[in-house]
């Protein structure tokens, strides 16, 4: 447990040593802020629904950018060899790095609370969907971070890691939007696989155990696959 904490702290600090954290957070806030407020006054509703509608797409490329270096850089620089010969287990390394990415996502979401405050001042805001939206965003961020981590463990090239991670995240986000192309018998299954479908359920303010189970189990599968990839490197 202690090692997880040490790895988490080290990885989290690493984000802020290099300019990447500031750039990613700035891009995230610019994009979400622009798209949200550019239509907010047209709709004339005190709700964050548009913001949460946008979030899965934005997370699909922002989070793989956050996670792409976690293993790729270590493998490329060679520090992975030092790390894995220290008294740590694969699970501790994976969980430590994963939690660092999730913490980063949470920190990245923090400034968007100002949108909530602004809207609450402008009109009557229903707190249910807002709280649900942020909880869903953390679940979605965790799943995408786990996928990004897996992509990063697959290659020593950060760009390739980013592309792999982004492709999987995009696919999970868009899959339930493509259902009209697909046979009717597959609709239920494919809708269930889609991350956006589950996220939007939670963002309505309904915490359904099926949605929570989806995020928990799919994140676990991605982390377990990362473990297998690392074992394979031995």
């Amino acid at each position: 447990m202690k090692n997880i904490r040490h790895i988490l702290t080290k990885e989290f600090k690493s984000y802020f040593i290099a300019p990447i954290a500031y750039i990613v957070i700035a891009i995230f806030l610019l994009i979400t802020g622009w798209f949200f407020f550019s239509t907010f006054f047209l709709y004339n509703q005190s709700s964050l629904r548009n913001f949460f509608n946008l979030l899965p797409i934005i997370f699909s490329f922002i989070i793989p950018a956050v996670t792409m270096r976690l293993f790729s850089e270590e493998i490329y620089v060679g520090s992975y060899e030092v790390l894995m010969t220290l008294p740590v287990t694969f699970s501790e390394v994976i969980v430590g790095k994963f939690l660092a990415a999730v913490t980063f996502v949470a920190i990245m979401l923090l400034p968007t609370l100002s949108y909530t405050v602004t809207i609450a001042l402008l009109g009557k805001l229903d707190p249910g969907p807002v709280i649900g939206g942020y909880i869903g965003a953390l679940f979605l961020g965790s799943l995408f971070a786990a996928i990004g981590l897996l992509a990063s463990a697959l290659t020593r090239n950060q760009i390739i890691a980013f592309i792999i991670g982004m492709s999987i995240c995009f696919a999970l986000t868009l899959i339930d939007k493509m259902l009209f192309f697909l046979p009717e018998s597959l609709l239920g299954v494919l809708e269930y696989i889609g991350a956006d479908f589950h996220f939007q359920n939670i963002a309505k303010g309904i915490l359904d155990s099926r949605d929570i189970l989806y995020f928990a189990s799919s994140s676990f599968v991605a982390l377990y696959a990362t473990n297998l990839v690392m074992q394979g490197k031995k």
Binding site: I7, K10, S14, V77, G78, V82, L86, P87
Partner: peptide, 27 residues
């Protein structure tokens, strides 16, 4: 204790922070 060839370490970290980190991992 292991020192791989060319001492591959974390280039962004300060020496002091890095040694702290290793000491923490070594409990």
């Amino acid at each position: 204790g292991y020192l791989p060839e060319n001492a591959p370490l974390y280039p962004d970290m300060l020496v002091y922070d890095y040694l702290h980190y290793v000491a923490d991992i070594r409990q």
